[in-house]
Amino acid sequence: MSSQTNRTRNTGVSPVRIRNTGVSPVRKHRKQSTEFTGETPVLRTAVTNVVIAGLGGQGVLKASDILAEVAFRAGLDTKKSEIHGMSQRGGSVASDVRFGKNVLSPMIPSGRADFLVVLDGEQVDVNRHVLREGGVLIGPDKIDVNALGNRRSLNVAMLGILSNHLEIDLPFWLDSIKANLPEKLHDANIEAFETGRNAAGD
C-alpha cells in the first residue's frame, strides 16, 4: 500500500494550519468556529474535501467508494466517512471523501468542502452548507440523464465532471471504476464517466 500510510503520518502538520485553529497558544479563545471559513489556503491545498450527496438507491456510496479509491491509487492519504445502514430506498444520503498528504478526521468540517456533488435536485439546498466560500457545486442539472445509456450510472457521470476539477490522472479513475463495479457494468459506466467528463466542456 502507499507510502503515505506509515503510522507516524499524523505529525506532518504545516505551521500555517496551526494559526488557523480555534485554540491559540496564548489561550485566547475565539467564539465561532465558522469564523475560519475561507481563510485557510494551506488547509485547502493540503486536503481536498468532497461531499457526495443524494438519495438512497442512487449510488452515492458507490460513487464515494470509487472516488476514495482513485485518491488512494494516486498515492494520497484518503479517508471516507458516511452514515449508512438503513436498507430502505429514498432517504437522504451523504458521504465525505477527504484526501491529501495527511488526513486527520474522516469527517469534513462544516463549511469546508471544496466540492459538493449532488445526485438529486432536491438535495442541493439540504447540503449547500457544507461548501466553503468559493467551493464548487456540481448538481444534477449539469448532466442530461437522457444522454446516459443508463440512468443508474448518473453517479459515475457526476464523477466524470468532478474529475475535470482534480489533478488526478485519467487511468486512476478508470481503474477504480472497474475495481468497484461488476464487469458487466464496466462499459456503461466508463461511457457515463466520459459523458460527464465532456459535459463540463472545459
Partner: peptide, 19 residues
C-alpha cells in the same frame, strides 16, 4: 476547547427514509 456553549446551528434536515 474554547468552552463555547452558544447554541449550535440546527443540522440540515434531510429526507427521512421511508418504506
Amino acid at each position: 476547547l474554547s468552552a463555547d456553549t452558544s447554541p449550535e446551528p440546527a443540522p440540515a434536515k434531510g429526507k427521512p427514509p421511508q418504506l
